[in-house]
Write a protein that binds this DNA or RNA. Structure first.
Ligand SMILES: Nc1ncnc2c1ncn2[C@H]1C[C@H](O)[C@@H](COP(=O)(O)OP(=O)(O)OP(=O)(O)O)O1
Ligand SMILES: Nc1ncnc2c1ncn2[C@H]1C[C@H](O)[C@@H](COP(=O)(O)OP(=O)(O)OP(=O)(O)O)O1
Ligand SMILES: [Mg+2]
Ligand SMILES: [Mg+2]
Ligand SMILES: [Mg+2]
Ligand SMILES: [Mg+2]
Lengths: 521, 521
DNA sequence: CACCAAATG
DNA sequence: TACTCATTTGGTG
DNA sequence: TCTCACACC
DNA sequence: TACTGGTGTGAGA
């Protein structure tokens, strides 16, 4: 199982597209909130989820760039194209990361020709030598990496250490057939040790395969990715972070290696263990994954069944061994933060806008839904959601608003003076809109239309066959006798033990049962 | 515990108010459906819940009277007035029946004077003598029994056997101080053997007390009631039917008597065991209450926990020993049957009418609710309900209709040609309307009003104290650590056994747990 | 919570 | 010709 | 079903 | 000045 995650994704894209940013501390987002930062900024403590103005206190020279989502989506598609060549069933977890199952690729790879593992070089990191002496056939194909990015791309960008020491590829050295120096005596940059010099040959094992994939990604996007290779998703996710940026890490599929890796791993590294959970667990002396197993008694006591299983799986390094393709989407939402709002009508207007947006999104995705959730965040940052499931699937903003309005209304009326900082509307219980026949979803039209139509009562008398006085005899006979008799087999078997016991002492002592049953209403 | 139930209630009222009905087979209801019948009609098999036109086949001479609910309600209030003098906490189960706890009354009764157990005679059944010879002081007080019935009452009616042989009251004979004949030699009717002749003296025991109460009811309403006296509600309910009409029955509060009574009692007599349940149980050889206990093994196997307890209580004659005062109402509904309906708009109109009715009912009862249920019965008598819980409590018919409309719409759209015979609307999740502040429940008004108001954004900047860069440190610190740690004690104790076991073999064999946990996603 | 079947008066 | 109406409860998903 | 808190990107 | 927006999930009622 391989997990791939782009390095400082948004930031990397912005740095790629604006070379002046590359040597600066920078972050992507706004003055209020940052989505990510580059590694220079991270040294100052600037992180995703941090307000920009606070980040600037930590890092005076921080440059903040507004995000360009269309670019990230485009890059993501390029990345996915590469993913697909290694595992057509890859599963994207977000724009910048995904899981791949390399097993079938590795089978193919074992039988592959060198040429099939040779990737042409169409773009070179600035750290690599491409003096004519060592790289006579350098070609830059402008279209190759850019076909899906709908914007000018004026330059090339850096990739720090694609071929660092640990990963140095013996196959390539062999393939080169020459004993070249590591660095160019001219430009002092690293020399490609492959032959032909306009391509890189990768080896047979999975490390090589993953390096090859990452190289392809870099060739295509001019951005670097890191990867984790492990026996399951849980571990590979952690691994992809181990050698960030632009690195990879492998946990071998042996119990030895898994245990060594997991035992000392801080629980917080595991995806799903967040701040709160970490704190709770640290309160019971659990800091590393092995602690989860050591304390399994206490854990089982205080945890739900699901959580306990989850903890145990972590402590044993167990995770999914297959990529579960993302099911259908379960919800779609829009929310917005704004300056403090107290005016009711302004709120309703905002609500309407959100419903409008949401309705558009739904239509665009050919989805309809039944459950509308209104979300509000008060000025004190407290959050409330109020949901309502309506009878009919819809993507119509008027219908959505009809419901959201009611929800908002009750919120407004339940508090003296409502001070809002955010409002959101979500649609869930989704279905593809294709099948739905929502005809007339319009009350007002009906109500005015009513008076005319109702008058003309078409007193048609269709095929009313006399069935006379059946009912009790006929109908109730065929009624399903469900009540007070559970068909549930599970229940049945659960009860058998208890029952047998009761059956044993049959009917000798009424009093016992009399009191056992008692009056519990 | 005493259960009192008026005899053939609606029918008795109608017979009282129209003497010509008294010797006829009659029923109350319509050609489509009867609510009850008198005892003459019952001899022909005419029962409540039977269509009138079928009843007429069984009984050619059946007279069907339309019901007069206001009368029944008025009579019920009179009855309740009597009830209250024996148990102020009496609990009405319907217009014509209720439970009373006589314990405190019996305490009082033990110390009471004869005069306190003497009920003046203001109305006399036709079967009693009121010749001047034996009843010189007869007075008919027109107002006494009628104060709450808002309709002319032109006559007096019959009460078959209030003083039949078994119940004949020795106290009265003693109190009379004379040796009177049983019947009047003049009119041949039974003579009141009390002195003074315009009152009846009742004895000290509970049978007498209940007779007294029933006599008071008859004096007040000119209608007779039957009663059951038993150690609990379950039994007294059955008892009140044993000597119907105008009789009473007692099960003594001894285990002997209870067991004798219950053992041979057909289960169907128990309130709660209906047709279907009877059939199901008869399928496993259960016909009498004692069978429930004999077959408790099988019963536990196939029944839910609740049902099983219920059965066991029946088999042992256990019931509530106190009158639980009716909690608040849980739902309110309107439904109507009509000639087959296929026109959509007509359906919507019907729906609107029902919502209107329901809204009125709610307001009249000062109730608001959140859950609207649409009920439809198709021409094939199949029933569907569709419910929706809205965000705001309401009693407004427009708001109710807004929801009911949607529900109806989906039903209409989900079937090619909907043929309806009934529609109903129900409101549940009720609350007293006093507290609710439902101000502006009006979308249309808002929408038109919107454009003006939204423009003027009042950009007030209130007391925004700088709190700077807290959040993660301050806020999240005080978060409740609920997730993945269940506080539920039941859960905890349930798990302790299992846990201890796991704890015992501590951490010697990872594999066992490894496989025990496995991959169950 | 939504839905249905059963039960009662 | 024609098979009610109001309300609660339990079971299931 | 509704609501909340938590988690991740 | 200023603390996101989109999505999923587990628990509890
Ligand atoms: N808290 C957040 N709010 C909004 N967007 C975020 C947030 N965290 C991450 N993102 C966006 C921006 C990131 O570039 C992108 C991918 O996230 P992620 O892979 O976790 O970090 P990253 O790619 O920026 O750095 P890294 O090199 O650590 O992977 O998702
Ligand atoms: N199936 C029904 N549908 C509508 N109304 C009913 C139905 N059953 C009973 N009622 C009404 C009419 C009854 O007079 C009243 C009281 O019911 P109930 O006490 O069971 O019968 P009853 O009082 O008519 O005769 P009884 O003498 O057996 O008590 O409730
Ligand atoms: Mg990343
Ligand atoms: Mg990522
Ligand atoms: Mg009755
Ligand atoms: Mg009754």
């Amino acid at each position: 199982m391989v997990h791939v995650d782009m390095d400082m994704f948004y930031a990397a894209v912005e740095m790629r597209d604006d070379p002046s940013l590359r040597e600066k501390a920078m972050a992507v987002g706004g003055n209020s909130m940052l989505s990510t930062s580059n590694y220079i900024a991270r040294r100052f403590g600037v992180r995703a989820g941090m307000p920009g103005f606070i980040a600037k206190k930590l890092c005076q020279d921080l440059t903040i760039i507004r995000p360009h989502f269309f670019k990230y989506k485009a890059v993501s598609k390029q990345v996915q194209k590469v993913f697909a060549t290694y595992d057509p069933n890859f599963s994207m977890m977000s724009l910048d990361e995904g899981y791949l199952d390399f097993t079938s690729h590795m089978q193919w790879r074992r039988e592959s020709e060198d040429s099939e593992r040779t990737v042409p070089v169409v773009w070179r990191s600035e750290e690599m030598c491409f003096c004519e002496k060592y790289c006579p056939k350098y070609v830059y194909d402008e279209n190759q990496g850019q076909e899906e990015i709908p914007e000018k791309n004026e330059d090339i960008s850096s990739s720090p250490d694609l071929f660092d020491e640990d990963d140095s590829n013996e196959e390539n050295i062999k393939a080169s057939g020459e004993n070249l120096p590591d660095f160019c005596e001219n430009c002092e940059k690293r020399i490609f040790k492959t032959a032909p010099f306009d391509a890189v040959l990768f080896g047979l094992d999975i490390n090589e395969a993953v390096k090859e994939m990452r190289f392809r990604i870099e060739q295509s996007t001019h951005l670097t990715a890191s990867a984790g290779i492990a026996p399951n998703t849980l571990l590979s996710k952690v691994c992809s972070d181990m050698n960030k940026p632009n690195g990879q890490y492998r946990v071998l599929p042996t119990r030895e290696d898994v245990i060594n890796f997991i035992d000392e791993l801080p629980i917080r590294k595991i995806s799903g263990i967040g701040k709160v959970c970490e704190k709770m667990l640290s309160g019971m002396e659990i800091k590393y994954c092995q602690d989860l197993f050591k304390k399994r008694g206490e854990l089982q006591l205080i945890s739900s069944d699901i959580s306990f299983r989850y903890y145990m799986k972590i402590s044993l390094g167990i995770g999914s061994t297959f990529v579960s393709s993302h099911g259908e989407r379960k919800s779609m939402s829009v929310e917005r933060t704004f300056r403090e709002m107290t005016d009711r009508d302004e709120m309703y207007k905002k609500c309407l806008d959100l419903c409008n947006e949401l309705g558009g999104d739904l239509k665009r995705h050919n989805l309809v839904g039944k459950t509308i959730t209104l979300k509000i965040k008060k000025s004190d940052f407290s959050v409330k959601t109020k949901a309502q499931t309506i009878a009919n699937f819809t993507d119509d903003y008027e219908l959505i608003f009809k419901t959201a309005y009611d929800l908002l209304e009750t919120e407004i009326m339940n508090s003296k003076l409502l001070k809002l900082r955010l409002m959101g509307v979500r649609m869930s219980t989704l279905q593809e809109s294709s099948k739905i026949t929502s005809k007339q979803n319009d009350i007002k039209g009906f109500l005015t239309n009513m008076k005319k139509k109702v008058a003309k009562r078409s007193a048609e008398k269709p095929d009313l066959i006399k069935k006379g006085l059946k009912r009790d005899a006929e109908k109730r006979e065929t009624i399903n006798i469900k009540r007070r008799a559970s068909n549930n087999l599970k229940d049945m078997f659960a009860k058998i033990k208890e029952t047998r016991k009761v059956e044993a002492d049959d009917e000798d002592d009424i009093i016992v049962v009399y009191e056992k049953i008692t009056d519990k209403k």
